[in-house]
Write a protein that binds this DNA or RNA. Structure first.
Length: 263
DNA sequence: TAGGCCATCTGGTCCT
DNA sequence: AGGACCAGATGGCCTA
């Protein structure tokens, strides 16, 4: 399954069963055979299967053949040796299929996360990348946590401290410093300007695909399709927080808040 | 065209 | 032993 069903989706994914073995995988110890691997990616499944089951298909780098060679039990060795190439082919297909399913499930979970993220959804909006989704989610959680804490403090003040429930933010617990999301959800993780070292999300080493911070949706530009800033404040005491406070002052909503707090 | 993002395959490791 | 998980490698698609 291709999880990209949005405008950002690829036009097509290679035939799954057909690409179970690329040329560069057959030549596992000879990576960077660019020329041959390019053509192999367009081969049909039958063509690749023929390679796999052909005379020179099993290199020492192959997992199963390697396990055969490393076996210390001679009987086991003979049994392993009897595994036919067809069986190995089927096993490879099976393993690849499991891995595909695992990644698809991961992508489904990522889609579920995107659905609850505060950014523009829609068919005309490019969906968040995986890294952007995770960074946004983290900062969104941080913001919600501190907002909840502030609501509870306000409720406590209104009721003369009788219902004062100060829930320490995880970062506060770790550092003793009070935490407010001073930047848009995504911005914090992207810039590394987290409230504290404990909260700072360091960008992982992304290999050849280094993330361009300024290109991530909503990171800085308000003209980008994703407005992560949206109705949420960009700093302490911003518009979003004012709205929240006014909402809390609404008597009906205050009752609702009290129900939640005292639950 | 380069860079970003992604899907897929693969081999290794860990767990049940 | 088999499955889950992970990271590396590779090629395809898209966009600035």
């Amino acid at each position: 399954m291709n999880s990209d069903s949005s405008p950002s989706s690829r036009a097509s994914s290679p035939d799954m069963d057909g690409m179970f073995l690329r040329d560069h995988h057959l030549h596992h110890h000879h990576h960077h055979h660019v020329g041959s691997s390019v053509s192999s990616s367009t081969q049909s499944g039958d063509q690749q299967r023929q390679k796999m089951t052909g005379g020179e298909h099993l290199r020492s780098g192959d997992a199963k053949s390697a396990s055969v060679g490393s076996s210390s039990n001679s009987n086991k060795y003979k049994l392993k040796k009897q595994v036919t190439e067809e069986e190995m082919y089927q096993l490879r297909l099976k393993i690849n299929g499991r891995e595909r399913k695992r990644m698809h499930d991961l992508n489904l979970a990522m889609d579920g996360l995107r659905e609850v993220m505060p950014y523009a959804h829609g068919p005309s909006v490019r969906k968040l990348s995986k890294i952007a989704t995770l960074l946004l989610a983290r900062n969104y959680i941080l913001m919600l946590t501190s907002s909840l804490d502030e609501m509870k403090r306000l409720v406590g003040e209104i009721y003369g401290g009788h219902v004062f429930l100060h829930v320490l933010h995880p970062v506060e617990r770790a550092t003793g410093a009070h935490v407010y999301p001073s930047t848009p959800f995504l911005d914090e993780g992207l810039t590394g300007c987290a409230p504290s070292p404990a909260a700072g999300l360091r960008l992982p080493a992304l290999g050849r695909t280094a993330v361009s911070l300024h290109h991530l949706p909503g990171a800085s530009s308000s003209t980008h399709p994703h407005h992560l800033n949206g109705p949420h404040e960009t700093h302490r005491g911003g518009k979003g927080r004012d709205e929240m406070m006014s909402a809390v002052c609404d008597r009906q909503r205050l009752r609702h808040v009290m129900m939640i707090v005292n639950r």
